[in-house]
């Protein structure tokens, strides 16, 4: 980066933003005297909105594993005598055009809708860490990788994901790859910046050829320094990945029928919006809640890991 603002604190807030431009600075911010785990937890617990986030997330995580099991009906079971019926005691959130229970479908869809976000970010994180390490460790690769990263960063918002899906074709798998790739740049820059700093601080290491042991050492060092910001950052990224995946499914580029992915449920419900609005409202509310939970949790986590915010 060309500019180094003195007012570094402001960059700390950039992570509110999915497209934070200065991850290196952000990394600098959140580090500091390491907290003990219990103190972080204490700070998290005291923060009311973070607690709410934790509760919401816990419910959704539970639904990921048990959603299908606790659903009142089989999410794929059709009942042609009972189609598009309004919410009632039998069907809490109504039924769809094949008489399937909407509530059960949403519960069963939790796994699909949320794990997409986690997997996409896992893909982005692993590619990003790899590229960042290589770029930071080997000068010969640095330029090439960073120019490539610059190219990826030239695509605003959803554009890169949409472009990748447009090329590879629709489907949840391609959606995960696309969203993963579009979160590579920030991770790569974060890691690279940290590696360079470690190398800078250790003249001997910087001077001699790197052996496998050194690389492992650097990696460990980098990881310790950067774990906290990466965790916080990834939390926000998961939220936006879930959002992006449901957006692509909504456009018809993601999940395939009969999978009850939430974005697809809304896309399919939309054709009945005027006669059966619950088909849109119910899954939409679930997406919003899930993203809200993750963001609240992220906010709390950031505050808890920030050494400057008192207890």
């Amino acid at each position: 980066m060309n500019k180094t603002p003195k007012n570094r604190r402001s960059f700390f807030k950039n992570i509110l933003q999915n497209n934070s431009k200065k991850p290196e600075d952000f990394a600098r911010e959140i580090k500091g005297p390491p907290h003990s785990k219990s103190r972080v937890w204490l700070k998290l617990k005291r923060n009311k909105s973070a607690l709410m986030g934790i509760i919401i997330i816990s419910i959704f995580i539970m639904l990921i594993f048990f959603g299908e099991a606790i659903a009142p009906y089989d999410p794929l079971e059709t009942d042609y005598q009972n189609i598009l019926s309004a919410p009632s005691l039998d069907n809490w959130l109504g039924t769809d055009f094949m008489g399937r229970d909407v509530f059960s479908r949403i519960l069963a869809g939790t796994r699909l809708s949320l794990t997409v976000g986690f997997i996409a970010i896992a893909i982005g994180l692993s590619i990003g860490v790899f590229l960042g390490l290589v770029a930071g460790l080997y000068k010969s690769w640095d330029n090439l990788i960073m120019r490539f990263i610059d190219v990826l960063m030239a695509f605003p918002g959803l554009l890169l994901s949409i472009t990748i899906v447009a090329t590879l074709g629709a489907g949840l798998q391609n959606v995960m790859i696309a969203i993963g790739i579009s979160s590579v740049p920030l991770y790569a820059r974060l890691i690279r910046g940290e590696v360079l700093k470690v190398k800078e601080n250790d003249y001997i290491l910087a001077a001699r050829a790197l052996g496998a042991k050194d690389i492992r050492l650097i990696f460990q060092h980098v990881l310790i320094n950067i774990a906290a910001p990466i965790i916080v950052y990834s939390t926000f990224r998961v939220a936006s990945a879930v959002l992006a995946a449901s957006s692509l499914s909504f456009l018809g580029l993601g999940a395939q029928p009969p999978d009850p992915e939430w974005g697809r449920l809304i896309n399919q419900g939309r054709q009945y919006m005027l006669i059966a609005p619950w088909l849109v409202l119910a899954p939409g509310t679930f997406i919003t809640l899930a993203i809200l939970g993750i963001n609240l949790f992220g906010d709390g986590l950031r505050d808890a890991l920030d050494p400057r915010i008192g207890e």
């Binding site: 094949m98 629709a170 489907g171 029928p257 009969p258 399919q268």
Partner: peptide
Amino acid sequence: YSRLAEVTREQIIKLGLTVTIETLE
């Protein structure tokens, strides 16, 4: 078409067969 595919799939799986749907642009 995705609606049609879902209903058709529902009939074919009565064989006990695994049926998948791919909707394409």
